Amino acid sequence: MNACPATPSAIALPALLAAGEQRLSADEIYPRLFDAILEQRLAPGTALTEQALGQAFGVSRTVIRRVLGRLSDQQVVVQRPAHTARLAAPDPQQARQVLSARRLAETTLIGLAARRTSAPRIRQLRELIARERKHHEQGHRCTAIRLGGEFHLKLAEMADNAPLTRFLNGLVPMTSLIIAQYETQPCEHCAWQEHAALVDALEDGDSEAALQLMHQHLDRIEAKLSLD
């Protein structure tokens, strides 16, 4: 499967993100930029200039500033006075901290989700997995990565704990950036299969199995990274 095409600088942002649309609001631009990060279409450290993004989306720099501020709150974008905003590029120590924080969040959330399962929620998760599998099998790695991230965020919503869900909402794109930087080997066991096994355990009401499967899933993510 081909790697996701990364954008090395802000120059290519208009072609990558604009899609010919104009007058988008900050609330409409944010998920598009967020998805581009999840799909690893923006390389860690990419410069995100207000002017380039404004041209890309046909909006003012004020609108872009609100979007970047929101991503900065999630620590996905790094903003410093008198410097161009950049996509985060975690060093190995920061990467380990992010992965550790994500494990704490996800293992807590899976326990909460196990107590709040319902047929409609299970169906939503399975629909996401079906889309993830389809794109994986078609070789659309970038889209499959994004849908895999969406699965974890949907699972967090199912847990019905807003602070933890917001916390994870920043850790998922950070994990995508970490994988883009430090992945050394492809995952032999597809993420959608691991997600499907998690949903099976939740549907069966087996919270202990779901917790174990989540640990194994996160173990596999970390095993393919070189952080030494």
Rank of each mutant, 00 (worst) to 15 (best):
E208Y: 12
R141N: 06
A201I: 09
A113D: 00
W192H: 02
L99D: 01
L164I: 09
H152D: 02
P163N: 02
L109A: 10
A191N: 03
C142R: 08
L128H: 08
L109T: 05
E208P: 09
W192Y: 15
T175H: 09
R166Y: 13
I179P: 00
R146I: 02
R86P: 10
L87N: 00
E203A: 15
L99I: 04
D160Q: 14
A180N: 07
L153P: 07
N161E: 11
V78W: 08
A113W: 07
H195W: 04
N161W: 06
I178H: 04
P90D: 01
F151R: 07
E157M: 12
C190I: 02
F151Q: 01
R123L: 13
R103A: 11
H195D: 05
T143L: 15
R86N: 09
E194Y: 06
A156M: 03
L168Q: 06
A209F: 03
L128N: 13
D91W: 11
F167E: 12
S118R: 11
I179Q: 12
V77C: 02
A130D: 15
A105Y: 04
Q97F: 10
A113M: 01
L164H: 08
D91K: 11
R102V: 03
E194A: 12
A130S: 15
G205M: 09
Q185E: 12
Q93N: 02
A119E: 13
H136P: 01
R103V: 01
T165I: 06
A88H: 05
C142P: 08
R126A: 02
A144F: 11
R141W: 12
R146K: 09
A82N: 14
V172Q: 04
E208N: 14
S100K: 11
R80C: 10
V77K: 05
S207G: 11
D204P: 01
R102T: 00
A201F: 13
R123D: 14
G149R: 10
V76D: 00
A105R: 06
L171S: 05
A156P: 00
Q124S: 15
T84G: 03
I129V: 03
L109C: 10
A85K: 05
C187R: 13
H140L: 08
G148W: 04
A162F: 14
A191K: 11
R126V: 01
R103E: 12
R115I: 02
Y182L: 03
C142H: 08
L87T: 01
E203L: 11
L177T: 03
